[in-house]
Amino acid sequence: MKNDKSDDRFVFHLHDVIRKREKGGNLFELKIDSFKIRQGEFVAIVGASGCGKSTLLDMLGLALKPTVADEFSIFIKRTNAQFGIMDSSESQLADIRKVHIGYVLQTGGLLPFLTVKENILLPCSINGMSPDNHVHELVKRLHIEDQLDKKPQYLSGGQRQRVAIARALAHRPPIVLADEPTAAVDKLTAYDIIEEFQNLTREMGVTLLMVTHDTNLVENVVDRMFTFEVHKKDEQYTYSVCLEKDKIDTSDGKR
């Protein structure tokens, strides 16, 4: 698990990963030949629904294990530690999630019974961290200072997503995963949110992986993009291959 030469290591390193899913007699297979992400990159995973992008995100978020994987590892620079997802236990994965990954979900994924403040501080409390100026700063930057004592149900969709972003970054994780973070807000707000999100993650040096179906929204801000090629063999068997969209030239991983 321990690492030697560090900077060149990929945050995510996937090679020949397959995830099979059977539903109602139909087999769906997601294949990822090569998926390598460096620290600090902003990567979008785009595709139509049913292509497997959420499945990929769940695997990257350590909530789902691949069926087969030649290589599927996460490297945490801060602790200089590398984990192979295949041979980590559920509680080890939960620990990695807790400490090193932040999540922004479609509709925020906020806990309805906690106030905005409690929601934002939840990752800190779970990690046993005391909140510091950083959180204060996040709240200010995301313009949600006035919402702190409200329950999420009283917020607009945009505010909710901002709170979700604050929560995802509160405990300073090196990786943030976002699943259609702007699906529930209007286009204009969406652009604002994406921009703020991108600025924050870049300043913090956070690796941001974002799933979206809207290429336009992200094409100007991301470093790289991955997409899917769906092959429908017959009624019962579909497979999808995840490929890097080479339209954007970021093959060396540098901006």
């Binding site: 106030t115 403040k117 409690e118 934002i120 501080l121 005391s130 909140p131 510091d132 100026n133 959180v135 204060h136 709240v139 200010k140 200072e145 006035d146 702190l148 004592d149 409200k150 329950k151």
Partner: peptide
Amino acid sequence: SESSKKSPSPELTDK
């Protein structure tokens, strides 16, 4: 909202 009595942001910086 039982925490509404608390003042907003300064709390976030409490150590």
